[in-house]
Design a protein around this nucleic acid. Structure first.
Lengths: 243, 243
DNA sequence: TAGTGGTCTAGACCACCCC
DNA sequence: GGGTGGTCTAGACCACTAA
């Protein structure tokens, strides 16, 4: 086969169609992050467009963060890059010297469970696997998380050995289930600690809480995860740049 | 004169030098938002580069939000666009029907004042004008603001007639002082209401507070304003997208 | 209809990386 | 030295806007 333009056929500009086709290939896992994708000249030949048009398509994907150019070496898929840790909402407030503060994760529960309404609305299904985690910085509990992922995309997740989990979940999604998280929407609000959460975080009941609700999406824009995370409002600090 | 390349001369790529030159002209107010800037062909001739190079320079400024293309009409400076209202941190939580909730501003104080350390550090000077505002949504006080702007850029600001102020400050900066805010950094944290702020916002002392600290920058990246704003944490809600 | 940006081409040469 | 992306050119034709 030569091109096999994906779903997106119409009379869109060539660079848009090419961009969509490349997105589909990345999403399908045709290319891995350690090997360069075909060179611009090769892609131009394959899709019968000029190199300039390939550049414009690739430029778009680089802006989106899906691809990465390395002069002299080639263009690569950017796999885990995704620096969206919820820790970014909590300042490192070590009183004494600059310790690196190692993040760690403690998976408390994994089981098949019906998603609560909010999660089901976001995911489009209530057939999910529920994960409860406690996340710490330098052995201090910082975040309590409740996570829901659809069974349709993550069959068998609840049976994975504990050893399969590092501090990050998204690499597991990618390596074990081929699900690449590309985009996430976080919604921050303010609340009070329930007894259970207070206990987990080592604070008092009714203490102020920062609550973050996240919906994560894959390359095709389909929701693949919903979570709600709580941390002490005292440690909350978030920077937002507006242009 | 023909080119008058601004500060940025070296052996940088042509499109970067051109972009910097255009940025300087925009910052200097050479072009106004209601008139198109010179056409791509004209700029190419003036700076002795190809149209493709002009396009790449303009592309960058469009991405930055400084310029706006209108096919068939031309390319325009994007003046006030800047949708960075602090209200975006506070959800409209009207109990009854969808009222439009009109934002309003109440300037309580304007005077020459020595900036507190935090503001002085951000602005690089403690010679400032202090502004205190109370901002409301549908007549409900939502935000209490304390603002510092350097006297060097805003001489005479404290003597402006009250009538000069609408609900927004940045248009005043631009129209009266030629200062265009291009970028701002907001830092959100949680705190407790002092007696004064509680009174302003109609809440109780020690009630939870969302505190936003902002530093705003002009087109050249120089800091032009520092402010601290407080609102009830109960109404706080913020959406953040990560890619 | 004239002028603008939007797309696209087919080259050129340079800077960089790796073998 | 051969291949890659990075910059740049000088055109072409199209889509849109406004006089």
């Amino acid at each position: 086969m030569t091109s096999s333009y994906a779903t997106t056929d119409s009379r869109l500009p060539a660079y848009v169609r090419l961009r969509d086709t490349l997105t589909a290939r990345i999403g399908a896992g045709d290319w891995t992050p350690d090997q360069p994708i075909p060179s611009e000249a090769r892609l131009a030949a394959e899709f019968d467009v000029s190199v300039g048009t390939v550049r414009k398509a690739v430029d778009g994907l680089v802006d989106e963060g899906l691809l990465e150019r390395r002069q002299g070496s080639g263009t690569f898929v950017r796999a885990p890059s995704f620096n969206a840790t919820l820790f970014r909402f909590f300042a490192i407030r070590e009183s004494d010297g600059a310790r690196p503060s190692i993040p760690s994760s403690n998976v408390i529960l994994r089981s098949i469970a019906k998603a609560p309404k909010e999660a089901a609305d976001a995911l489009g299904t209530d057939s999910t696997i529920k994960i409860v985690r406690l996340r710490s910085l330098s052995d201090q509990p910082v975040l309590s998380e409740e996570i829901y992922i659809p069974t349709s995309r993550f069959a068998g997740f609840e049976q994975l050995p504990d050893a399969a989990f590092g501090p990050l979940l998204y690499p597991v999604y990618f390596e074990r289930f081929g699900v690449m998280v590309k985009r996430a929407v976080d919604e921050v609000s303010f609340g009070q600690a329930s007894e259970a959460i207070a206990k987990q975080l080592g604070i008092n009941m009714n203490d102020p809480l920062a609550v973050i609700r996240r919906t994560a999406f894959d390359v095709e824009g389909k929701p693949v995860e919903w979570r709600i995370a709580s941390g002490s409002a005292t440690g909350f600090r978030y920077r937002s740049e507006i242009n």
